[in-house]
Write a protein that binds this DNA or RNA. Sequence first.
DNA 1: CATAATCGATAAATCGATTTTTCGCTGTTG
DNA 2: CAACAGCGAAAAATCGATTTATCGATTATG
Lengths: 357, 357
Amino acid sequence: MAQQQAQQRRASIHDVASQAGVSAATVSKVLSGVTTVKPENAQRVLDAVELLGYRVDPLASDMRRAKRRIIGAIMPEFESEFFGQMVSELEGLAEQRGYTLVAASSRESEQREKEILARMHDWRVAGVVLAPVRNEHGPAAGFMKANGMTGVLIDRVLADDAFDTVSADSAAASAEVARALVSQGHRHVLVVGLGQQAATVRARLEGFRKTAVELAPDIRVDVVLCESDVGPLRTLLRDYFSQREDGGDRPTAVYSLFLKGTLVALSEFRRRGWHCPNDISLVGFDDAEWMQVTWPAIAAVVQPVREIAANAMEVLFRRIGGERGPPRARLEPCKVFMRESVGSPGSVPHSGGGDRQ
Amino acid sequence: MAQQQAQQRRASIHDVASQAGVSAATVSKVLSGVTTVKPENAQRVLDAVELLGYRVDPLASDMRRAKRRIIGAIMPEFESEFFGQMVSELEGLAEQRGYTLVAASSRESEQREKEILARMHDWRVAGVVLAPVRNEHGPAAGFMKANGMTGVLIDRVLADDAFDTVSADSAAASAEVARALVSQGHRHVLVVGLGQQAATVRARLEGFRKTAVELAPDIRVDVVLCESDVGPLRTLLRDYFSQREDGGDRPTAVYSLFLKGTLVALSEFRRRGWHCPNDISLVGFDDAEWMQVTWPAIAAVVQPVREIAANAMEVLFRRIGGERGPPRARLEPCKVFMRESVGSPGSVPHSGGGDRQ
DNA sequence: CATAATCGATAAATCGATTTTTCGCTGTTG
DNA sequence: CAACAGCGAAAAATCGATTTATCGATTATG
């Protein structure tokens, strides 16, 4: 059994060496499986390791390499299911390869994103998985490029000329949402998005619009974008619906392009006493566990978190291994779950106010 | 401006030294603010630092200290809002003190929890914030103690004889829930919990029961506990209600002691076509953003994440600083939000089936 | 004027590993 | 029997910083 004295300095490779009566170099060789060690000595080393409870100090061990066996992960936030799952997946994948994942939250700030990246560069991480706050053209990606860092961009990206990218195929998913809404009879849809994430939002929006117009040329697609923060969205949405209060001119369905938007939309529906799907239909990009248990269950686009994580790590480690070649942009297919929050617009007349108590 | 060659080896302290025409020791002194350096040389060093874009390698810098400026955080999962916020808070607090937070998910496994802890010990972290899977008596806490690690236990803990603990005051919050339910007229309540987390669940359960019985001696409190995993809970809950189907013998309110339980309860209500609060009332321990926007909004106990994180870090750094003394157990007060999912039992008769479409 | 004290800076030791170089010994071959 | 190849292990260099010990030059003091 390993017997260690609590609170004391841990055994180093030299302690093992003197315990076994050999040199530190020999210990290192035994532990790394070099065969040029006499079996007798190897056994003595292993015994000493066992006796002292010795374990390699991974950071000291990394000192001589150019890059350390650490992968940095930078996410815009930790609070959502999506990024929580992402970090969890990435952690497991890094671990499988003998690397440690160090995750940090940029808290939706490009400034902080870059600072964290600089710190990770100081740490000499072998690679970085960056989920940028805005898109692939932000200062963080520029920093990575300028400093020759190895990395992969995920989520709010489409393609980049310097780094591999992996993200959900938002355009295809949005097209599927369009098909579903149109086939249910919707001809006036409000799309809610975040302007900040230019490229992805455009992909989702255009993916939706293109298919919608194809299937129903007379369809009307309104768009409400809040520029930088989610805060103003509440007001924007309120105003949007207020302007259409009297006339029967309001949309029969809302497609939110991001999770917070779905929450804000639901909140606005509550305020107005509207029920889904009788008064209005709702689909959100990004799924959450609770969407299955509410009444109505909320229709949502499920992003393939595992696949994105797996592919990001795969491509990242290929680059770490020295693979050359132009960056590749990978899109992973989403699943669309049309739950109860979506119905046919004509089936039940819009109700004015709810029966809240 | 810092000009760096992409892809190249980063400038070390020796590069700065030779650039400035001094020794590495002098550079180190200038950067750490030692005053025994001639102003002229100090300036040359600073110029060289600027020119080469030099930044200290934190890991190399930590080599000579007994402990590294790293704080480990081990959470049971990353997917929930609660632990996501927790990690985010802890990260910020560590950063403020010049430390780096390395977070890992034990994925609700005590085995994994201990492995991660061992790895963090290898890393020679200065301290650990451990949110144990089960409770304060698990193998992980034992490992920390046996190895003389510095740490603080949070969340699913009450008190420990070896480590400081910080957690939500579940008992007080549960008492408040009891007060609210009793005052609304509820006299038969089902409490749903996870047996695994012995002490905390008992605190929540007893906190509820004690106050409930005080205020309404005739109250009936049923308890459904699933032992280890959340999976069986669905079945347990289904059976519980099935057995009380015909007789009017079923509870008028459910108090779930943990988030997943709240989701399962909602799911079971859906299945039966019950609406909150008309058919049954619901309160959950642990809040989530979506609970405010659903219809009905779900009543919940909000845990003071910021306070728990702040206190945990505070007490941890005091220990890192060498503070002695017996471990202290700290409880942070919760807030209880009685939202629409709670009503009076008599107000509307229980409906048999729902009007789902 | 000789010695001591002071200041500033460098050399060297240290942290804990890995890897390259060196070295001593054994066994083989000319 | 001498020279050499081969093997196993130790010594030393290395990674990038910090800290202690040392050293040289200047200034102060007896």
